[in-house]
Structure formats: C-alpha cells, structure tokens
Design a binder for these strands. Structure first.
Lengths: 128, 128
DNA sequence: TTGGATCTACGAATCTCTTCGTATATATTT
DNA sequence: AAATATATACGAAGAGATTCGTAGATCCAA
C-alpha cells in the first residue's frame, strides 16, 4: 500500500474518478457522456478537470493520438482507503468503530452481506 | 430521525462541530483555543465561522450575556448519519457494505469492539 | 476613571473549485 | 478543397469558503 502523500480529489474530480474506475481508461468524450447521464456538464469542463487531475497526479494520460486517453493513477481501493481515513478523522473523530456501527445500524444489508462481515471479524480475531 | 434537509457543513465548520460535540456548549474563545491546539487560527476567524453556522442552522447560540454561548443544533449521530450517506454515495458508489468491509479490514479494533459489532449484526438478523 | 483587554459585527481580500468561452489544430465529410 | 465536426489549450468569470483587519461596545484592573 502506497504511503506516499496522495492528492485529495475534489467533489468534481471524484465524480470523474468513479467513471474511470468503473470503465477503465477512457477519452474525455466518454467520461463526459457518462457524467451527462446524471447531470449536464460541458465538454470543456470535463476536459479541464481531467487536465487538472493529471497535474495533481490523480490521473495519467496517453497523448499518442490526437484524442487523449485518461486513466486513474491509483487503484479504487487505495483511494477509498485514503478518503476513508480522512473521513473517519474529520467526522468520527478517528473512531472507525463508531463509523462501522453507524453504517451497519442504518444499512439494509442482506443476510449474505452480514455473514460476510461476520467472517471478516472472525478472521481478524484469529490473528490476535 | 429528522429527515428534513440538513445543511452540509464545510471542512472548517466540521472542525468546529467536532469541538462542540466533544465538549458541549462553548464560547468562541474556548472553541478557538481548541482549534489552536491543532493549527493556528485567528479568533475572529472562528467567530465568523460560528456566526455563519448559526445562519445556516448548524448551530444555535445563547446571547444572554455579552459572551455568547454556542451549541450544535443537531446531534452528532444525526449529522454523522447524514455525512456518512453522502460519503458512501460519492466514494463507495452507494455500497455501505464495501465501506464497512474496508473500514474493518484496516482497523485496529479491540476484541470488545468486534464483539459489539457481532452483537449488532445478530440484532439486525433477528429483525428479519 | 481611564487604559487595556475582550467581546461582537461587518466587510473585504484571498483562495479554491467549477464552469465555460474562445482560439487553434486536426480530422472528416460533402 | 471547402465546410463542418471534433480535439486540446488556455484564460478568466463566478461561486463558495476561509481568513482576518478594523470598528465599536462592554468589561475589568490600576
């Protein structure tokens, strides 16, 4: 797991990351189309954002052909872990347990999912 | 649980909410001192932020005495639930389960805490 | 009672993020 | 080849959040 300081994505950047994580490397056009399925966004807006993301190190791009191809520079799991840490700190005062309890309490989890969590807990307990 | 639209706190406002949640009603001076244990913040900066929070409905204040007393207007749990929902949507594409698994996987939870989670899961399972 | 400390109110500078218009280059179609 | 479509680059406007200086009121200590 990379411990290096990871640049925090903004709200808009996160939206784009979602698309790139879900579909993999993509063009500005593709990303913009996906975003427009949810809300209206101008093409150059998406372009600009992607360019900024490259500057920040959140994304890379292949500029071989005229139409550039963008991809994320860190895995979804890594980024989620990073954002989760920040979120736990800022909203749950660092207590991951409180977050888990809160999330579980209000979730509509299926029995299978609950079992999955139980299994994970068992695994963690074995390690200690 | 209040379903009414709750104003989203900004980063800076959240820092202040943390203090109010932890210590209860407090003066600007007190909040500012607490903030300054972590980073340098001007007194009037904190004051302004608290005033804005009252405007937004994030906090209330008692103006009886010259030194106003501020307190949060919604419980910590309500606000956390609200922010959690938003966070799950924006970062985990709506999957609370993925978030829980991720959080558990990287937590240093004590056996007691893990038991607490197990108990909660059992309760949830009984209900269905 | 006068001077300094402490409080609130207010406005404005600054920063960041978002959004898009315009310019320019390249491809595609007619 | 000319007109149209599509791409990147760049700059800058607009909105929101943060920060703080300054003014004016009240309290307190010498």
């Amino acid at each position: 797991m990379s411990t290096e300081k990871m640049p925090q994505p903004t709200e808009g950047e996160l939206e784009i990351l979602q698309v790139l994580w879900e579909y993999g490397a993509a063009t500005v056009r593709f990303v913009n189309d996906k975003l427009n399925e949810k809300r209206e966004v101008g093409y150059t807006t998406t372009l600009k954002l992607l360019q900024i993301m490259v500057e920040k190190g959140l994304a890379r791009r292949d500029t071989q052909s005229r139409t550039h191809i963008y991809e994320t520079s860190s895995s979804e799991a890594d980024m989620q872990q990073n954002l989760l840490q920040k979120f736990v700190d800022s909203t749950f005062r660092g207590s991951a347990m409180k977050l888990v309890l809160q999330a579980l309490g209000n979730s509509d989890a299926s029995p299978e999912e609950l079992d999955e969590i139980k299994n994970l807990i068992d695994q963690i307990e074995k390690k200690s």
